[in-house]
Design a protein around this nucleic acid. Structure first.
Lengths: 313, 313
DNA sequence: TTGAAAGCGGTACCAC
DNA sequence: GTGGTACCGCTTTCAA
């Protein structure tokens, strides 16, 4: 590896001067500059980024923690982050966590060891306390409403839109609504917001047999619908947590030769467009973009809210 | 930042000894070890990864170059790479290229500057010559058949499966086949393989009006199908380059109140399952896993071929 | 079993 | 404008 000292020697100047030429900063005589550049060309020199990083104490890497890449919620946010990184000086490092707390802690430790300048949690199992504890080592942004003010956050304004959707249902005289959630009420903020909005509009929670709490895929949606069909429940609408799930519901009804009730999806995916399912667009790509801007920005503590839309079709 | 020398001083030993304790290598007296560990605990010390990287001359980062994350071909391979990285010591850095040659060259230069230990090109615009030129700076793997032996590569065995699919069509007395490609014959190896296989079976290329060369999305598929419908072409089958595209084709026919011909997709996506479209599964996740194993491995020059399946439904 | 010292490859402050 | 030098923080060889 030819280094900065080789260039210095070759061109008869000091390493400091080579460094100046390299960075185009400070004054260097034109003749000196040319001599140094000639030496660099001749020795086929390029600077070493790791050495530079060490000297600067930073490496422009942002770690992005997500459980896996099988769910559109994660991948859509990730896409936004990546798109935004393309326009910034930062690189995105993917850190899969499989919902495993100790893996997440390990990533926080890596932040502490300077492996990254900053971290984005698209989702997390560990507590917010743990996250704030590590904030001294680099900026950390979470992609959810933390319900406290000492955490950088970007999140979708779900509640308003859920209220809008449920209000609309009610205006259509629809009151028998099944709800398919991705995770149980206790462990998911999204589930809490959904059910709280539901209760605000319908003044009660859904009956137990109309509430499904671990539905995340097409297949899960299909099976939940089958349960509803078999039990011959009186259902006017099935409110799901994603268009793929919604598609599963519709397919299940069709497989049973039945007309599905009104099905509502989320995330405005292709599956929903194909089957003409009303949906809620949370604009996760935009959320991802904001997350990167926030985590690489210089500003004060901040929380950004992204609007979402209810799309009737 | 408390560093290794602080620990050395605090515990009354040399930095070398602290380093030994840190790495658990070489002999350190038990009493010494305990003293050092106590000092580390007390000063809340963690080693600096960048310094370690500089000393080692490597950083365990693998760059993954892809045009964008909007196409399932890219994201499926990426998922495989990420899943595999979880089981390795390497980190995945996402490098979006937007099909831009100078951006790709810049990433190659970053490899040279030691920003990464290795690179995976999921897709690339630059020449293979350029890629081999930079191979001296770190291992580089491409995700396509390079048709030469001096490049690490992982690719799907498309030709065999395309032949199988076309043969099956022929056995069904289907000879009027439209083909929707993602890119033109000249610039896409996949397009070449597709049409070459077509020609092997049908002894001729598709007519010009049955060949579409820049179709990549649902919408593109929809529009291509509209063209076919409007021109009232005699088509028994539409062979597409993806299930989402295939879904667009089917939807276009339905919108025109027409029964679609046999439509074949690729990639075994949800959209294809929903609409019951026959497809070709290229197992891109597996391809991604192999790509990471290959790029981080120690072995000789190697090329790995992934089997694909024709799924009739 | 341990320490001194020379790297790894740059950056940046302070004189001249 | 330019050079000297200390420093970023860890690893590793060689001697003791």
């Amino acid at each position: 590896m030819t280094n900065i000292h080789d260039i210095a020697k070759k061109s008869g100047v000091s390493a400091s001067t080579v460094s100046r030429v390299l960075n185009g900063k400070n004054y260097v005589a034109n003749s000196t500059r040319l001599a140094v550049e000639a030496a660099m060309k001749e020795l086929n020199y390029v600077p070493n980024d790791i050495a530079r990083d060490l000297s600067h104490g930073r490496n422009y890497n942002v770690g992005v923690i997500l459980p896996h890449t099988k769910h559109p919620y994660f991948t859509q946010i990730l896409s936004g982050i990546i798109a935004s990184s393309f326009e910034s000086d930062y690189r995105v490092v993917i850190l899969p966590s499989q919902y495993n707390e100790s893996v997440e802690i390990d990533y926080l430790e890596q932040l502490r060891r300077k492996a990254f300048d900053a971290l984005i949690f698209i989702s997390h199992e560990i507590s917010l306390d743990k996250i704030t504890e590590y904030s001294q080592y680099g900026r950390i942004v979470v992609c959810e409403n933390p319900n406290r003010e000492d955490v950088f956050a970007v999140y979708s304004k779900r509640r308003t839109t859920y209220l809008e959707a449920f209000k609309w249902l009610k205006s259509q005289q629809i009151e028998q609504v099944a709800v398919l959630l991705s995770r149980d009420y206790a462990s998911s903020v999204t589930s809490q917001i959904t059910l709280d909005a539901y209760q605000s509009i319908f003044t009660k929670l859904p009956n137990n047999d109309l509430l499904f709490e671990t539905v995340t895929t097409f297949q899960d949606g299909y099976e939940a619908a089958q349960t509803i069909i078999k039990q011959q429940l009186n259902v006017q609408c099935i409110f799901t947590n994603g268009d793929d799930v919604a598609a599963g519901v519709v397919q299940a009804y069709q497989a049973h030769q039945k007309t599905p009730p009104l099905v509502i999806g989320q995330e405005n995916q292709l599956s929903g467009q194909l089957l003409n399912i009303p949906t809620i667009n949370h604009h996760f790509d935009k959320l991802g973009r904001q997350a990167l801007e926030l985590v690489t920005g210089a500003g004060e503590m901040q929380q950004v809210v992204i609007e979402s839309d209810f799309i009737i079709r």
